[in-house]
Design a protein around this nucleic acid. Structure first.
Lengths: 162, 162
DNA sequence: CCGCAGTGCTAGCTCCTGCAAGCGGGCTGC
DNA sequence: GCAGCCCGCTTGCAGGAGCTAGCACTGCGG
């Protein structure tokens, strides 16, 4: 019977110690209520540098309708959201959450759902994995934020003289 | 005592007749929808011993509409499904899955793939989670194997003689 | 200048969802 | 017998989802 490595054990312990702090921070975050799925779709589409017509074509929906959805004039069904998600190459769950159809879960919907639904895990082990996952996801986001700050240097005396 | 050949012939004939009847019934059934959510809702409602009108009232939908949904005549939106789920005191995700809106998450492969493909994680964190996951899965399997052995003792000479 | 290709959007239309009004049936109490 | 209540279902309709046809605009090349 193999046991978790020392490294893994330390990670789990560190996570437990930081859970209280994380929970306190979560309490101060306001709950997102209304649907911003249209904005979200437009943001994702722009990030992918795809035209509205191209996305509509790939997703199999009409481009005027997609335009209306993006501008919040229409409320698409789950089926249409699924098609748009496929066109954007993102998970349908992501759009469902943005649309308020699905409750937002910590981290990426797919991973959390997979852990929760996995019959190969006991409930206790699921909880441990989910805590660790959430902490890692938060760390990763913080690292990305730092990297972005480093990539967009703020004016400094040495740089001004260069 | 019937002769084997006649008996066999009658059985084959009976099977043929039942196949024709089944095929005829299948032809009269409207195009099969991948969604069985209506049946599922009715089943859950019956199990809860709640009338259609009562569930409709609690769920906040019209009872004729709920009736149509249960009989597969209408395809409810995700919003209505959420209301019905609340009325039935089950998770909305359960009904979304039955309706084909949400993919059912299952199995070990799904969890591993989800962790590996999760953009919210760094590669190092993925490795940690995967190692922990494998260890837990092994542990769980070993526990199940032990429980099965205890529940189903293997035959022993003393038992054979009893 | 023109035509062409691409862009996102407007307007009118069809079809379907979800509802209200009401039906026929069964059961109970008077 | 009756009225009242509950049951699930039928019918007709309003409003919204999603579409087609087409518009105005931009950029490019001849």
């Amino acid at each position: 019977m193999q046991r978790p490595t020392e490294f893994v054990r330390e990670q789990v312990t560190a996570v437990r110690e930081s859970v209280v702090t994380a929970a306190a921070e979560a309490q101060t975050v306001p709950a997102a209520v209304s649907s911003h799925v249209g904005e979200f779709i437009r943001t994702q589409r722009s990030a992918a540098q795809v035209s509205l017509r191209e996305l509509a074509r790939v997703a199999g929906v009409s481009n005027p309708y997609l335009s209306q959805v993006e501008r919040g004039l229409r409320k698409p069904s789950a089926e249409i959201l699924g098609q748009i998600a496929r066109g954007l190459k993102i998970s349908a769950e992501t759009l469902y959450e943005q649309a308020g159809i699905l409750d937002r879960r910590s981290g990426t919907a797919g991973t959390v759902a997979a852990i929760r639904g996995d019959a190969a895990l006991s409930e206790r082990h699921k909880a441990v994995l989910l805590e660790l996952y959430e902490t890692y996801a938060r760390e990763h986001a913080a690292q990305l934020a730092r990297a972005l700050e480093a990539a967009a240097p703020t004016p400094t005396p040495s740089e001004e003289t260069a």
